[in-house]
Amino acid sequence: MKSSLTEGVAPDQLPVAHEHQNEKNDGKQDGRLSLFRLLLKDRFATVSALILVFVGLTALVGPALMGDLATKQNLLFANKAPFTLAHGWEYFLGSDSLGRSMLARLVVASRTTLSVALPAVAVALFVGSLWGVWAGYHRGWRENVSMRIADVIMSFPSLLLAVVVLYVFSPSAANIVLILALTRIPIYLRTARAESAELQSRTFVDAARTFGAKPNAIIVRHVIPVVLPTLLTLATLEFCYVMLAESSLSFLGIGIQPPDVSWGLMVSQGRQYLQTAWWLSIFPGVAIVVTTIAANVLAAWLRIATDPAQRWRLALPRKRLIARIPAKEAKP
């Protein structure tokens, strides 16, 4: 089948462009490794990743290391200012009015915060995205019904909904997660629907239909990979929102229940001491902001890194380096 045919084709059609393209892309071929290398090239993304790893590790093992420091009261050390080791390392970040170590409380709160915010974001992302992609791909009544449901949820004040639900049921972490997820689903639903509706009219999706591929297969193969990076970026923004929403609930007394503590709760509790003991709310506030920004930067980076058409933007500085020392690269 191939012999005579390809002989006819090959000689004058082998594209010249190959030569230089091969050189350029040698390093990029092995997927995961190159993604890691790309990450190292971007200083901001690397720092963000390190921050996130640090926060994650803190939430994972920190509370065990701190023992009961977070709850141990010591009125002798009440309202100590931060940044001094005079009272021992545990009071380096100061203490609250009951003399509890801020450092320990921040560490313990990180676990609570992440264990509420992460599942809430993940559930909303998962449900909202799949639903939105499905609605957008099929259009028609599925789309209309989905969008009206989203409108209903959006138009209902989410905090009010949370208050009602959490009063009726107990304000457990699981319930907080569920209610926060439910109210944030429409955000993902709308975005996913819009992108999916646009994608389903693309030619490569048409091409897949001509092979007889089933809608679900097309959604998995062609729609989700394109939509996902956008939704992940959205999710990092939502992460911030959910942490703050959780703190509002905690402030109202229907969120995290003391003696449990979350960053949001610390912010709202410390607010009344802002003039006398600023560190009570500033430190957890900074923790929230830093974590969110790190997640956001990393998501923005990830969106470019996973888009083959944009990836060159990240490969830049490295390429110039190679150009300057060609001898090493040219060897293989």
Binding site: P11, D12, Q13, L14, P15, V16, A17, H20
Partner: peptide
């Protein structure tokens, strides 16, 4: 047909621009 494709702008050779084809 003319074999190959035009050079990329960042890759235009010294000498004649058409040399590769």
């Amino acid at each position: 047909s003319i074999a190959g494709s035009p050079p990329e702008l960042h890759d235009i050779p010294a000498g004649c621009v058409y040399q590769s084809r």
